[in-house]
Design a protein around this nucleic acid. Structure first.
Lengths: 148, 148
DNA sequence: GTGAATGCAAAACCTTTGCAACTGG
DNA sequence: CCAGTTGCAAAGGTTTTGCATTCAC
């Protein structure tokens, strides 16, 4: 995503948001690190390599603005530092306690995440966050743990 | 567990946990305030009314211990202060942005929250957290907002 | 040109920790 | 009795804020 740049990904338009160099840089970093679900601090490190003058406060600022504009998503797992994610499809997050990685989990074909919940009439859901913890079973660490 | 107790709720047994007055008090407060999903600070206020010597650190301590013992659940919504919940049934949380209240949402009869997600083979889910934001439509505030 | 965004440092917020005193089993 | 728990205050990590400077439109 954003990787297969047939054209350039530079200067995207996020609904009339003033596109500063910093916002663009933060968005680009997040596109590049996407699957890693970086924290603000991690985005800051990579952004600073590309734009040494950028500050941590600005990274927080940009991440908040981009989240508000719907360009990225904020991922909160327990009380750990927020992570950020450029994947806009509806998806859940799986946090592996074996390897400390976060994976995106898609919906089953045709499934609807809301419909399993018994929502009272009149109640309108605007946002839904689904997070799971467990063992991913992919890495050596985890494939051992998964056997038990 | 500990829920279907026809008799008094006093002095419950949480799997060999040393039951101090403070732990009991914190658990009792949470049972009483249950549906309000209080924060640690809110539990502290009520606990202090009943036991003036209790400290905030102890409330945090007890909440963590009780969570670890599976007697209560921690509820994290965005980056706000953690809330706590004595409902041990599988359920989601609905945070109403109109009235700032948190509601428990049960599963539809026979439904399974995990099965809508396309989990990779070998991956084992140990915990799942589902949170929604929106308008509950119950309070005056919200019933107006819900019409729009 | 001008309102909005940046960078810096300091503050805010929630939560955890160190340690001496205490207590439940 | 004594490991585990408490209460207090101080520290911790993450995020936000105030303000002068700079920038995108």
């Amino acid at each position: 995503m954003a990787q297969n740049r047939t054209v350039s990904k530079a200067t995207e338009d996020f609904g009339g948001l003033r596109m500063t160099k910093q916002r663009q840089a933060v968005y680009d970093v997040l596109s590049d690190l996407g699957p890693q679900h970086p924290t603000a601090a991690e985005v800051f490190v990579t952004a600073k390599e590309r734009m040494p003058s950028i500050s941590l406060a600005t990274v927080y600022n940009c991440l908040e603005t981009l989240t508000g504009a719907g360009a990225i998503k904020q991922v909160n797992i327990d009380r750990e530092a927020s992570r950020y994610c450029p994947n806009l499809q509806p998806h859940a997050h799986f946090y592996c306690t074996g390897c400390n990685q976060v994976f995106d989990i898609g919906l089953e074909r045709g499934a609807d995440a809301e419909s399993v919940w018994s929502l009272p009439a009149g109640c309108r859901v605007e946002e839904m966050h689904v997070a799971m913890r467990g063992i991913c079973g992919r890495c050596p660490n985890c494939s051992t743990a998964a056997k038990s």
